[in-house]
Amino acid sequence: MKHLLIAAGLLSATSAIAADKPQLTVYTYDSFVSDWGPGPKVKEAFEAQCDCDLNLVGVEDGAALLSRIRLEGENSDADVVLGLDTNLITAAKETGLFAPSAVSADFALPVEWTDEVFVPYDWGYFAFVHNADASAPANFRELADGDTKIIIQDPRSSTPGLGLLLWVKSAYGDEAPDIWAGLADNIVTVTKGWSEAYGLFLEGEADMVLSYTTSPAYHLIAEDDASKAAAAFDEGHYMQVEVAAKLAGTDQPELADQFLEFMVSDTFQQIIPTTNWMYPAVTPSSGLPEGFETLTVPEKSLLVDPEKAAVMRDKALAEWLSALSQ
């Protein structure tokens, strides 16, 4: 172990000497940095204009990302964090580790964006995805009354799972426990994360799976397969807005600002739809990629503002647990 430490120390020392360019470290979730995600293209495009090294570090998911930042505290290596969503914003702000940014843009979000610290880079609607040839219920009540089988994610371990919790709570308020009680016999199972749920759905374990309205776009554009559709629910769809922010303790404040500006530019926003499979936060001048026009567009968007979401979460989680533990 000692030799390894020495070797690692030497390695980092030599790379520090070699790198006369400034380094910008961005913490994000793992699927962003994977070779199929936006990471590699974003790195190439930003490095072409910044004369710096962009160091993308992947951490499991949005929630784990925030934990990592809290664990590292003020000494974090990160200059920018990219990949939190609105449900995590309050907890993130309470840490006092993030700094306001001056970025403004003509956001194409269905809601107005006023937050000074967090800058959105993409967004989507949660939705139940099903096979296009099967009929889908029109809302949660119809789903609960029928015998359509669904797979969902656990709100204690997955961001879509938490999104569904707030979706039902914001649409039904005090009636949410009844909705969950009604849904209990529709739920085939609850998984740890999105991948397990989506994998089981593709294997045919359920009629619908909790995912995004943009999921069918992946199958259509990347696989030329139009067999998946997202069910439109008439009580509205809960949104996920993904955001980034600069850390107060960064040693590269200018570069961090430059990155956040770059993030809402055409170059970055064009990469998002077909790598992260979400809607870009600012519609690029070239418009959305072909295929996105076929997607289900909800008539109503639901989003609880961050401060209320933090309070609502605990109550909604308790209701969810008691309804499904019967």
Binding site: S157, I187, T189, L200, L324, S325
Partner: peptide
């Protein structure tokens, strides 16, 4: 056990 128990167990029970 975590993911196996949750998925095969069918929910928060």
């Amino acid at each position: 056990s975590f993911a196996v128990a949750l998925t095969l167990g069918g929910g928060p029970r």
